[in-house]
Design a protein around this nucleic acid. Structure first.
Lengths: 337, 337
DNA sequence: GTGAAAGCGCTAACAT
DNA sequence: ATGTTAGCGCTTTCAC
């Protein structure tokens, strides 16, 4: 029923190994004539390689896993950003003959189990906390951690230049003339993403002459609802604040909605700047000014690193930071007087 | 290095087959004492089954693929809806010992190749057009097509009750008193999703006494920008229209933005109703009234069908439609006078 | 209830 | 440039 290497070998009058070599592009070892003949027969017979067999024999699978932590609820519900990363990486890998296994991780040890059980060639760790990445003890397989600031030498971090992103946001507000600003984001997680953005933001503000001690920090969860709640009370509770930097677009959009609901106007009463440049940042009125990362570059980088490690075995290297840029829409203006 | 069945067998003083049976829960064939002993040793040794080996020997993989078409760009960039489906199904399958392979499809024949090459146990087809589903000629593997109205007997359709969703939207507008309404959606694709929504919508309107010939149909792509463009000219071009049903939330949100930009108000000058109940429908001011589908039920149903087919071999059955309900927020009100 | 034999389809490591 | 030998770790089949 199913066509295998030996079928082709029989018809071509060569050994199975020769066919295998042809199929795997080890053309150095086979004559041109044989290659052509084998290829032609394979094509005619409709040969499809058996992946499990190849994985078993070679103890490598051509599979890279996308590992995502699952919470109590259990469902993988990744952010738009994660979707873009996984979707983009899948394309690069597919074009190079690799496949992507999607796997939710409930307990730490499932990472190692998955890698061993599948003879995975590599794994991408998405949305894990730095603490989780720190705990990883797996060697021999390239592990790329997205948006992580863990110092774990067994993983390679690929992330946005969050510090510079924060700086851009701060500089944008300061340049517009704001001197009383707010930083709204989730609670600090060590020197992770949020910490970097905060540092960069503060540095830019200070460099522009803002009194650092006057920067208001609000801890809010990264959700529309929490942003809205903040927006509703912001103008009343902080009458001196004229601009806010939210560490995520959803949050910023929520703040804008809350401010509007409370009768305020953006950017009339309050300037708002976000981070991520999600679709939604273009859906508001006015559009949300935000810090964007170059997703194409990020995705290409992740794929490149994994592939290089797998095929050329180039050892782990320093974390990679990707550039950011400011997208100016309409939510930032001069402070009210 | 790696622990295998034979290692456990050695230590337990039984044959490999017995260990295999224990591991696969074929407890009928093994004595309780042996089961316990084997399990204990496996645990102690840290046994992890080798998936490729099992797939090769059993010619079934415990893998279900999530197949997604890729366009020219090449990247998998699925909608929030697709993300929810895949993420949710992954959880159900994982808990039953299955895995999800994520695969972009460029050409039709890649579907069959992927299924054969991996000995896939099943596949879920996401975001394919009805025409693509129609063309599928694969037997022996459960194929679940999401949101498809194809009549291909080799696939099982799982979809939203779009007709009823359209009806709910129409009834909602008619009940609020609207008699001049617009239907905005992408070009008709046979009797697919859009056609169903249109049919249901029109039927509800007519049932409520709306003159069917007066229902305006606008063909727009499902994007914020196209919605916005429509919103910008809507009040001017169609001064008699007092309400619009958009077949997708992004579109509805775009329309709301366009209307606002043109100086109109929602729902003062125009009522708007969407479809999908995406997050963004809650982000607007006022909130978007929209038709929601029960995603949890949908995901559970997809998983159930695949698993039933795989494990009990229950043949293909009729398509499954899942319920919808209206979510009333603030974008629908009585027509202006 | 348990086990021995045979092989799934492929590749690594040598031959030749 | 091509072939041979030996598995990879597991399950199937059938015997005990």
């Amino acid at each position: 029923m199913t066509v295998k290497l030996s079928d082709i070998a029989d018809q071509a009058g060569v050994s199975v190994m020769t066919v295998s070599n042809v199929m795997n592009g080890k053309h150095a070892r086979v004559s041109k004539a044989t290659i052509d003949r084998v290829l032609e027969i394979a094509e005619r017979l409709g040969y499809v390689p058996n992946i499990p067999a190849r994985s078993l024999a070679a103890s490598r699978s051509h599979i890279v896993a996308a590992l995502v932590p699952v919470g109590e609820e259990g469902s993988l519900l990744f952010s738009p950003h994660t979707v873009a990363v996984i979707g983009g990486v899948e394309r690069h890998l597919r074009h190079r003959g690799y496949h992507v296994l999607l796997r939710g991780i409930e307990r730490d040890d499932e990472i190692a189990q998955t890698i061993r059980g599948w003879s995975l060639d590599g794994a991408i760790l998405v949305e894990f906390t730095d603490a989780q990445i720190d705990r990883i003890r797996i060697d021999g397989v390239p592990l790329v951690a997205i948006d992580s600031y863990s110092a774990n030498p067994r993983t390679i971090g690929v992330r946005t230049d969050d510090h510079r992103g924060g700086w851009l946001a701060g500089a944008c507000l300061a340049e517009a003339g704001h001197r009383r600003v707010m930083f709204a984001g989730p609670p600090y997680e060590g020197m992770g993403v949020v910490g970097q953005r905060w540092d960069g933001f503060r540095a830019a503000c200070v460099a522009a002459g803002v009194d650092a001690s006057k920067i208001v920090r609000e801890e809010v969860l990264t959700s529309f609802e929490d942003g809205r709640a903040l927006g509703l009370r912001l103008l009343r509770d902080h009458p001196d604040v004229t601009a806010v930097f939210a560490t995520a677009d959803v949050l910023a959009v929520g703040i804008m909605a809350g401010v509007a609901e409370a009768g305020g106007s953006v950017p009339g009463d309050l300037s708002v700047i976000g981070f991520d440049a999600l679709d939604i940042s273009g859906y508001t009125t006015p559009g949300l000014t935000t810090v964007a990362q170059d997703m194409d570059a990020k995705v290409a980088e992740v794929a490149r690193i994994i592939l290089d490690e797998i095929e050329r075995g180039e050892g782990p290297r320093a974390p990679v930071s990707l550039g950011v840029r400011l997208i100016e829409r309409g939510s930032v203006a001069a402070p009210r007087r």
